[in-house]
Design a protein around this nucleic acid. Structure first.
Length: 596
RNA sequence: GGUCACGUAGCUCAACUGGAUAGAGCACCUGGCUACGAACCAGGAGGUUUGGGGUUCGACUCCCUACGUGACCA
């Protein structure tokens, strides 16, 4: 398809030379898909040529159209509307394209000239509470972007930088010590991550009470927050952890272990995975050498109190702290360290950080600082910045208990899929296990598609009712189209109809052309998605393809078609659609069932 | 106070990076299952693309400005 477009541009450039005697390079021509309301596939916009050629836009269109029709066999018709030359492509070319697509492996890499060694860091949870809706957008985005980049032939490492240390974990640990009474996930019958989350909430509750009490005694809010006994204990615990205190470290190990069991369970359930785990407890001291390096190179400076800074005022930012006066790290210090570590591990030419847009400033600074250090990988860093997920009631706030828990949500979408499937009476012939598997596939398909179809950088609204919808612009709509074709293929096989393209077909139905065109656009959709790091491009593509196919399906008979050559062609066309849909969904992390 | 995003149909989102009459889904109305799976398809209604100015053959897209929403930096 891209090839055809390029060839047409070259042909048009030649036509301009021949007809008008002017040299206009092919790259300068504006060609675009023809709007639905007009006949044709490609459209040349002739307005920009008027000056160079000294003719009116219609005149140019007419002359070029005539030339192409006479000299380019793939163009078999054209029309000119104002400054637009619409070109119609011959059926023989569509058939050739379909034949070519059928001969290729749909999973074969799409060459883009993009990065070859990529690290995608995503998920990166804190270990003090279970995953929630915001994490889901992050996880689905990260997994999908990794799959998309793989589809361009890149070697991709999925990395998870677990934030397993710090004051927030100590809060859970302290609350557990005080109120836990030796409870375990087994004894409580609660998933590990949820158990730890329970104690985090408990900490916050008692902590707030202590603040309130102090304030009642006339202490200012600021001081109360700092001096509340629970907070002081948590701080002491953090120091003990850093000093390697055996009791604290052992409790920390135990509780993190529970959390990981819970996380692994959730990861498995939502179908994401990782090739490499980094733990902040092992990386939080890194980065100090980078600070030394920067001081030696004279790109950082030390203030009188001993703290180290970088001056970014030339870049329109301000001065940024890199190391505290007491020599302890800040987040930036660690991130400098892990960037170096990741580069040593993987020598990436692209390092993708899937992080919410509230970190935009931080990531901008990280990149600039690495640049100042002269790091070769500074430009390879890409912040895949995504917007927050809002609820109809507003922003999610853990303190106000308005978070949507990931595990609960997955259960809800699965239940919704079960209910709808039962209503439609489509579970006959499935074992209970198969049925449950299907409900999960559909529910998760709905949820993933819902979160991925929106442009990542945009803030989005999560409507619980819409997220479980199985009709319309949804994942299950695409899954359904795939399942329906699967059934068609099974029947075709039973009837002895082979999906093949014989010489017996000369002309195509309009909807068949549309389907071939959509199929042929797969590669450019993947390329575009990879270039922009946007699964939404694939989501939109898969929907359009399914939509186009469904129209074909209702307008044209496949199996009942009396002409054997046409019948085989339509089965082949359908098969290609199913394969392309399955592959597209795979890039989104969504499974395409054979029946539903 | 400063920086950066975003603002499109009642609601949720698109618009091939400056091109034609701004498209889908949901919700609402109408029609289509004795040819292959109706989780589908066809049609209707719904828009001053937040307001105002500018750039040009042409602006949802670029620039300026006001307003609104959100995030971040001190």
């Amino acid at each position: 398809m891209q090839q055809l477009e390029q060839d047409l541009k070259a042909a048009l450039s030649a036509a301009i030379q021949q007809v008008f005697g002017a040299a206009v390079p092919a790259e300068q021509l504006t060609i675009q898909p023809t709007r639905k309301d007009f006949a044709g596939t490609f459209t040349l916009v002739t307005f920009p040529l008027t000056k160079a050629l000294g003719k009116g836009p219609e005149q140019i269109g007419q002359a070029l159209g005539e030339w192409l029709q006479a000299n380019e066999p793939r163009v078999n018709g054209f029309n000119v509307v104002k400054g637009f030359l619409n070109l119609e492509i011959a059926d023989a070319e569509w058939l050739r394209l379909l034949r070519q697509l059928r001969a290729q492996d749909i999973a074969a890499p799409v060459q883009t000239g993009g990065p070859q060694r990529v690290v995608v860091e995503y998920s990166s949870p804190n270990t003090n509470k279970p995953l929630h809706l915001g994490h889901l957008r992050n996880n689905f985005l990260g997994y999908s972007v990794a799959e998309i980049l793989k589809a361009t032939g890149a070697t991709v490492t999925k990395a998870n930088l677990v934030n397993d240390r710090g004051i927030h974990i100590c809060k859970s640990m302290l609350a557990y010590q005080q109120y836990g009474q030796g409870e375990t996930p087994q004894s409580a019958g609660i998933k590990g991550d949820h158990l730890i989350g329970k104690y985090y909430v408990l900490f916050e509750k008692h902590y707030r009470e202590q603040i309130k009490q102090l304030e009642a005694e006339g202490v200012s809010n600021e001081v109360a927050k700092r001096e509340a006994p629970l907070m002081r204990h948590a701080q002491e615990m953090l120091q003990a952890w850093e000093a390697g205190d055996e009791e604290v470290v052992s409790l920390w190990r135990q509780m993190n272990g529970w959390v990981y069991e819970g996380f692994n369970d959730t990861y498995q359930r939502i179908g994401v995975d990782f090739d490499k785990f980094y733990y902040e407890s092992e990386t939080y001291l890194l980065g100090k050498e980078r600070v030394e390096e920067g001081l030696a190179k004279g790109v950082f400076f030390r203030k009188d109190d001993g703290s180290v800074w970088v001056d970014l005022t030339d870049e329109g930012l301000d001065q940024k702290l890199l190391l505290r006066a007491d020599g302890t790290s800040v987040y930036m210090t660690q991130d400098l360290g892990t960037a170096e570590l990741k580069y040593q591990d993987y020598q990436y030419d692209s390092s993708v950080y899937v992080i919410a847009d509230e970190q935009n400033y931080h990531m901008q600074v990280l990149k600039l600082v690495l640049k100042k250090l002269g790091k070769p990988y500074a430009d390879a860093i890409y912040h895949l910045s995504y917007g927050m997920v809002d609820l109809p009631s507003g922003k999610m706030k853990s303190r106000e208990g308005t978070v949507v828990d990931a595990d609960e949500l997955v259960q809800e979408v699965t239940d919704a899929a079960k209910q709808t499937t039962a209503e439609l009476g489509k579970i006959e012939g499935l074992s209970e296990q198969e049925a449950n598997q299907l409900f999960h596939t559909l529910g998760l398909g709905a949820l993933k598609y819902y979160l991925l179809k929106v442009d990542p950088k945009k803030r989005m609204l999560f409507d619980p009712n819409e997220s479980v919808q199985l009709q319309g612009h949804t994942g299950p709509f695409i899954q359904y189209t795939h399942a329906r074709i699967s059934q068609l293929r099974r029947k075709a096989a039973e009837m002895g109809i082979r999906p093949e393209l014989t010489e017996g077909v000369a002309t195509l139905h309009e909807t068949e052309r549309d389907v071939v065109q959509a199929l042929a656009s797969y590669a450019s959709a993947v390329a575009e998605a990879a270039r922009t790091y946007s699964p939404a491009v694939i989501a939109q593509y898969a929907y359009d393809l399914a939509k186009t196919y469904n129209r074909f399906y209702t307008e044209v008979p496949v199996l009942p078609e009396p002409d054997a050559a046409k019948r085989s062609l339509r089965v082949a066309l359908s098969a290609q659609v199913a394969d392309t849909l399955r592959q597209s969904l795979k890039l989104l992390g969504i499974t395409a069932p054979e029946r539903m």
